[in-house]
Design a protein around this nucleic acid. Structure first.
Length: 492
RNA sequence: GCCUCCGUAGCUCAAUUUGGUAGAGCAGCGGACUCUUAAUCCGCGGGUUGCAGGUUCGAGUCCUGCCGGAGGCACCA
């Protein structure tokens, strides 16, 4: 709180009221609360049987509206279940108590109200207040009741006000919670066990990204915040678990935009004796299940598009999609130079990339990805951008990897996991060379992980789903910040 | 990091093409009002126009820099 002389008029008024309340010997922040029913319960009981009005009940909540009309006053309070109207009468409360309420209570204050339910002339179920008590004084006015809080910066910086003022935002984060709950339910029902692996890691891995760094005092060395859960979860498959998953935060030290927040939530699961085809079936079934559980349908609207999540989703290879959208068959241009010439020849506008695999990926991002509105699995990526995935037996320059796309958005990543320790070592070494050449996102070598693989890992399918993006999809939000309660902003 | 746009009262927004004393609604304060629903009616207060400079007789408005935000580019799942 600022210095007194910097307070606004309204803050001074509320401090004044607080002082008056204290002078009456009332604790404006009492420790104990009484409540017999939530607003919704009270309303439901009364609707079921109006004799419920004979029962004396106690409701609690935040004052969200006060309508003074002389010797009577209407107010609304809101608790977690919803709103309900309160009715204050001069001749029920008595002169002193009635005036005390009007003089010292503000919108935003929490109140405990004792009384009986009845219906007003307009039919609204209302508590006739016989006794009231302050539960917590608010010293700052709430956002305006009609227009709410619109300023995006304020909505993110003071999310509590956003949640108070904008019901749709409150609902959205309930939906997010239900999405995660449904995902857990789905995986649990399939026999997966939920595990927790380190967030602070001596070597990061499992994705191509720059990490956040920190210092571990007790161990006197640099540590990293994880960029994925992958390598630890696969150690658990080596350890003998057949189905594991983890839902948690990953951290990637990169820029922010409408689809990226440096701190984001990922679900990763691994299934022994499975391949990427099995993971495709798992993915489409899981997403459809979540949509059905949370939205009651597998047909959704995203950014104005009607999208049908009903399985099965089409499968298409990256190669076929590139031929379809750009006319380029990368199998005909197997080195960087010829590929670039092909791109040039067709007048396609893509940024130059240092390797063949990255160039293919860039072409795909630019000319295919935005058009993948209906759900689809894009399969078979270049090996050099997939150092942890198993090669396709019939095409060893490609890997058994897929990414699910919906709404023009990549919502996950999956593969048949590479379980050949010697090939894995080779791939790490190639990454190390890329690092030498200045690729800051190349994987560091994780000898301990190779050591684990050397003890034998069964053929395994792995899948990662971005929870934030899935939430965007199911809540029709085009910015990732809208589905993160406290998105990262610059400090003021 | 670069480009474009934005920042006015606690909140939502005005402020005349092309510079001329910063307004309204809600919220607040005082008053009237015993069935209201954005209650209504009368009156009152509330601002270093994001910050710092500059141009000008005069800047919310034009210029420069900085801070913050949004969108885009680059990077990325």
């Amino acid at each position: 709180m600022e210095k007194l002389e910097e307070l606004t008029d309204q803050q001074r008024q509320r401090l004044l009221k607080l002082e008056r309340i204290r002078q009456h010997g009332i604790d404006p922040y009492p420790a104990r609360v009484q409540r017999t029913h939530t607003a919704a319960e009270a309303r439901r009981n009364y609707e079921a049987d109006e004799s419920f009005g004979e029962e004396k009940i106690i409701l609690t909540g935040r004052l969200v509206a006060i309508r003074k009309m002389g010797k009577i006053t209407f107010a609304h309070i809101a608790d977690g279940s919803g709103k309900i109207q309160l009715f204050f009468q001069h001749n029920v409360l008595g002169e002193e108590n009635y005036r005390f309420f009007l003089q010292n209570f503000d919108i935003g204050d929490f109140i405990e109200a004792h009384g009986h339910l009845f219906r007003t002339r307009t039919g609204e179920i209302t508590l006739n207040v016989e006794k009231y008590r302050l539960l917590a004084k608010a010293l700052h006015p709430l956002p305006e009741k009609w227009h709410g809080l619109k300023d995006v910066e304020l909505r993110y910086r003071r999310r509590y006000l956003d949640l108070l003022a904008n019901e749709d935002v409150r609902q959205l984060f309930i939906t997010r919670s239900r999405i995660v709950k449904a995902m857990r339910h789905f995986l649990d029902s399939k026999g997966f066990i939920e595990v927790e692996t380190p967030i602070l890691q001596p070597i990061y891995g499992g994705a191509a990204a720059r990490p956040f760094e920190t210092w571990y005092h007790a161990l006197e060395r640099k540590f990293y915040l994880r960029i994925s859960d992958e390598l630890y979860l696969k150690r658990l498959i080596v350890g003998g678990y057949e189905k594991v998953y983890e839902i948690g935060k990953d951290f990637r030290n990169e820029g922010l935009d409408v689809r990226h927040n440096p701190e984001f939530t990922m679900m990763e699961c691994y299934q022994a004796y499975a391949d990427y085809h099995d993971m495709m079936r798992l993915t489409e079934e899981m997403i459809a299940f979540i949509a059905q559980e949370v939205l009651g349908t597998t047909r959704i609207t995203y950014a104005g598009h009607e999208i049908d999540l009903t399985p099965p989703w089409p499968r298409a290879t990256m190669r076929d999609l590139l031929i379809e959208y750009t006319g380029i068959d990368f199998e005909e241009y197997r080195d960087l130079e010829s590929l670039r010439k092909a791109i040039e020849k067709r007048n396609l506008q893509v940024d130059p990339k240092p390797t063949w695999g990255k160039q293919v990926d860039e072409l795909f991002s630019e000319y295919v990805e935005p058009y993948l509105i209906q759900p689809i699995f894009v399969m078979d990526y270049p090996v050099e951008i997939s150092p942890l995935a198993k090669r396709k037996p019939e095409a060893p320059h490609l890997v058994e990897r897929f990414e699910p796309f919906v709404g023009g958005m990549e919502i996950g990543n999956a593969f048949s996991e590479l379980n050949d320790p010697l090939d894995q070592r080779e791939r790490f070494l190639e990454q190390a060379e890329a690092r030498e050449r200045g690729d800051e996102e190349a994987h560091p070598i994780d000898e301990d992980y190779i050591f684990a693989l050397m003890h034998g890992m069964p053929p395994t399918g792995g899948l990662g789903i971005g929870i934030d993006r899935l939430t965007m999809l199911l809540t029709d939000k085009q910015s990732i910040r809208e589905v993160i309660l406290f998105p990262q902003l610059r400090t003021l």
